[in-house]
Design a protein around this nucleic acid. Structure first.
Lengths: 143, 143, 143, 143
DNA sequence: TTTT
DNA sequence: TTTT
């Protein structure tokens, strides 16, 4: 029964997150994330191999994604692999594998090129680690 | 372009690995791995949620899997996520996500209940970490 | 300011955990964990390199360690690196680096070779993943 | 004997790497890396907790660090924990724990603010993942 | 399809 | 101090 199911990604968003706000007050964000590796092949040519991942974030990460993540941003995401099935129009069972994030950190510079020290305020935490994992004596919400 | 694409799993094999030996001398092993988590739901009932992962191992991990891994065995696998596409009989594009392992450790007791000290020899390393990552001054092959 | 500080270990306890119950109701467990890697050196000799880690677990993982972990057990531990300083008898500043666990899974067979189905009861969950990270709609305590 | 000893860090360099080139042709780089987490304490005040890690990189990562890493840069580092002992001037045994990197990715923007598209060339790969782990059919050196 |  |  013991199990570990962990995914660690550092990549760039292929597009802005799509965020849906559910009736129960929760939100869910979806976006694709590209992780690229570069190497030289036998011919000595530089080759880039890009892998795309389907990311799913739930409250409170979904709201943070909505506010701070944009197409092109580089993020660290830790989560778990989940595969769900559905029936397509031909009646075939199909499977989609997604990474459900549980920790997220926006990497690199200012989220959208804004300078620091703006009155925005939210900017101040955009590079902080955010998660839905409580620390001792802490409030894990970034603001 | 920087990227990290890492998966860490501890789970149990759903069945024996299927190993194909290719014409080019390489081998590839496939098997499904279950990772389970148990929790209590709101009604206080214990619930087990199992996720199945498609594992792919190439030489030399494939041969090690062939020799030492059996249905039910618990293993640690580190690898990367890859999604490949193919066309089904209805002409639809379909996708399969797999974990391509790059490091593997057989966990727990003797692989199949055999006692230690058999003449088999190979048994002695079945719980050693195996990988295709060279260490300094080392031979990464387990035997 | 963004940061990730993650340690993932699979190893064996060098001795039984030492558990202290604090006045504030919390408990803390300490033990050393060995992670070994085996390789062949240039002379073709098998060499084992063992690294020892100082593990610290707080409530509720400390109580779980107290009940289920014993010298020799193999565990998966995920946590973070922390270094604390203290002054030795010569007035020198000294540093100790520890891994503060936040998720733990007992690996392999029965904790101490006991068969399943004992009246102990607690035994039943000893191989379940345990953590202090809440899941949705779940009770993360193992019992 | 099975073991996993893995550290994953995303942090910022506290100072430029110190690189020594050894007589045997190998190089070793040392620097400290800060990983910070921010949270709100019980008083609702934002608190930042910074942990410092001793990083050690060997050839070829050492040379890459020498060329591309500078104080303040944000990097992803994957490696293993090692503790080595030494005797201090008072004859006491002392221990230092370090993270020996095996994979590294420079995060965020241009390494030192240089614009892209320079003739430098090396710039082009500074954000690529670098490691001493061979891929199939690849040259793992970044240039 | 695994495991407890 | 563990494990195989």
């Amino acid at each position: 029964m013991a199990g570990v199911n962990k995914v660690i990604l550092v990549g760039n968003l292929g597009k802005d997150p799509e965020v849906r706000h559910l009736d129960n007050g929760r939100a869910v964000a979806n976006f694709s994330l590209a992780t690229s590796e570069t190497y030289k092949n036998k011919q000595g040519e530089r080759v880039t191999n890009t892998e795309w991942h389907n990311i799913v974030l739930w409250t409170p990460l979904a709201e943070i994604a909505e506010k701070f993540l944009k197409k092109g941003n580089q993020v660290y995401i830790e989560g778990k692999l989940t595969t769900r099935s559905w029936d397509d129009q031909d009646g075939n069972k199909r499977y989609t594998t997604e990474v459900v994030g549980r920790e997220m950190t926006l990497l690199g510079g200012r989220p959208d090129g804004s300078s620091s020290g703006t009155g925005n305020g939210g900017d101040n935490m955009a590079e902080s680690p955010v998660s839905n994992i409580p620390e001792d004596d802490t409030d894990d919400l970034p603001f």
